[in-house]
Design a protein around this nucleic acid. Structure first.
Lengths: 345, 345
DNA sequence: TCGGCTTATGACACCGATGTCATGACACCG
DNA sequence: CGGTGTCATGACATCGGTGTCATAAGCCGA
């Protein structure tokens, strides 16, 4: 490997001068600079960040702990994509700051985190972003000797740890407000399991929207329609029952809010199997703006975007532009109104 | 930061002995080992991989160059998930070998690759995996001074570079063979754009399957039904035309193979809008086994799995268990037969 | 009993950068 | 003309580990 010493020798200067050329600290004569740059070019010199990190205690690495990649396989409730977008957002910011992502994966087991943080510590990351698979409170291992700052994305830990989470309340509220504004009065809500924080926030938003509009809340219209455990078949059955219960109410709801786009996709099929047209007979909305589904479905699906990329960006900024005190940021996502929702005259 | 010297002092031994305890080279007395381990524990010592890398020229890092994360947004033809699964496969193997992924992203622009490889070189990665967004030939920058071995996953470069690609031919062939075995005689094929290598391989497989069964090839049944450029609307229109053309043939096809699951999803909607039942009136198959779609669709979609995770594994193995000569590995994926395909009596 | 071998350990240089301090050459100012 | 900055550059120590070699103790067989 070509080292800085080789460059120095080739350019006929001292190693320190080469260092100055690279880092721009200290003054360097024009002629010297040019000969050094020529030598670097000619030799194909690539500086060693290991050596640099050793001396300067800055690795230029940001550790990311994620379960995304694993969850895609194992936990069908989670699409896996969220963390991908979050990762993209992180990279957006880190690219500008010339930092590189050191990626570690929990393999779906949260108890792998201590090991991963230890690995990151070995590499002396300048900071760590812990990406939660979905909006939740996460248990972090005690901040042992790992002094590097830590931010949680898509979840939160404790008051001492900065975090960035999606604003589930605002998203669902905007959706239901919009449905009401479009003339809907009986709006069903097929919830994800209550265990999810997102469900709690969104349910509150659903209720508040009704109250704000002076509409009654019919408990028959709010049904849990998915489950965390169980295979695809069991989950389909759960949804099936929910739809049947819904279609047994009277008068029928004019709109159905689904816990996510995946559920909306299944709902399309089930409603059609019963001869209902979307949106003529009944409107359908999702959540996530999982574009692969929302844009491809016919008619295209109205849904609330989850601002994952922005969550990643915010998390990276929080980490690299350290403020005095820990912060918690709530990022709202817009509603994408598409053809699956009709306006009632 | 606690260093190895602190541990040595605390345990009353020389630094080298601490090193030996950690790495297991050279003999260490039982009592000595225990006191060193106790000291490491007590002080919360975390070795510096920078220092280690500097001395031993092994960083314990594997660089990954990917466009996945970006493509998810920009190129709607690609789901973005492929690289996620590939990444997961890579991690499967690297975890065992105690290697860590240094992740860099092209941001969707292939010309970013040289810069990324330079970054990886700075970190002295022990090897690099270049993940192509879809099965294609990629242009790699000249292997300058970056001597670390390189493997391409989900694509290939030149004969001097090891690569792992999906076996598109075998997958499509198994699907069409299976359809024929189930009594289908008029099988339509809605292709992805011809520019994709996958399309070329799969088309050949479609044709070979017909020839092998002694079935005629009707050109009216093979239609390009997607496009690389254009927005969601334009792509829907392209598909719409293809479906119309298909339904104008006589006799009607009894099965439709779609270029991917996303297309199949749209096809479901279009066929139903025309009053056709799946699979009673017509069978539908996809490609990718994008489970979010294939398992959620009603009826569940028959599709060919793309073995992304295995591709990642193979690539990582190729990289970390270096063979003498470069290799190209072709990984087949199984057909998942689900309810969207009927057997014709 | 002594040479030779193994085991356990330490001294020291070195990997490739950068921080600190020193030095020589000018330019400027009074 | 001497004092004092600024500019350009180099010498040298240092970051935290590991490779090499030396050394001392213990054990064995001849």
């Amino acid at each position: 490997m070509v080292t800085l010493y080789d460059v120095a020798k080739s350019a006929g200067v001292s190693p320190k001068t080469v260092s100055r050329v690279m880092n721009g600290d200290g003054p360097v004569g024009k002629a010297t600079r040019e000969s050094v740059e020529a030598a670097m070019q000619a030799l194909g010199y690539v500086p060693s960040s290991a050596a640099r990190a050793l001396r300067s205690a800055k690795s230029g690495l940001i550790g990311v702990v994620s379960g995304a990649i694993s969850y895609t396989d194992d936990n069908p409730l989670l699409a896996g994509l969220p963390e991908i977008y979050i990762l993209r957002g992180i990279q957006d910011v880190l690219d500008e700051k010339r930092l590189t992502v050191l990626l570690t994966d929990t393999g779906g087991r949260a108890d792998a985190a201590p090991r991963l943080l230890h690995t990151l510590a070995q590499h002396r990351v300048d900071g760590t972003i812990y990406v939660a698979p979905y909006h939740q409170q996460v248990d972090l291992p005690p901040p042992t000797s790992v002094a590097a700052p830590l931010v949680v994305a898509n979840g939160f830990a404790d008051d001492a740890t900065s975090a960035v989470v999606p604003d589930d309340y605002t998203g669902q509220r905007a959706l239901v407000d919009g449905l009401i504004a479009r003339g809907h009065r009986r709006i069903a809500y097929l919830q994800l399991p209550h265990a999810l924080l997102a469900t709690q926030h969104r349910t509150r938003a659903y209720q508040d929207a009704h109250r704000a509009a002076g509409l009654p809340l019919d408990p028959a219209l709010v049904i849990v329609a998915d489950r965390i455990d169980g295979d695809a078949e069991a989950r389909t059955a759960t949804l099936q029952h929910a739809i049947e219960a819904l279609l047994a109410t009277s008068p029928l709801p004019t709109a159905i809010c689904c816990g996510n786009d995946r559920m909306a996709l299944a709902v399309y099929g089930m409603l059609r199997a019963r001869g209902l047209r979307i949106p003529d007979d009944i409107s359908v909305a999702g959540y996530d703006d999982y574009r692969l589904i929302s844009e491809t479905l016919y008619p295209a699906l109205t849904t609330v975007a989850l601002p994952y990329r922005e969550i990643g960006r915010q998390a990276a900024r929080l980490l690299t532009e350290p403020k005095a005190e820990p912060r918690r940021i709530c990022v709202p996502g817009p509603v994408h109104w598409r053809e699956s929702v009709a306006t009632i005259a």
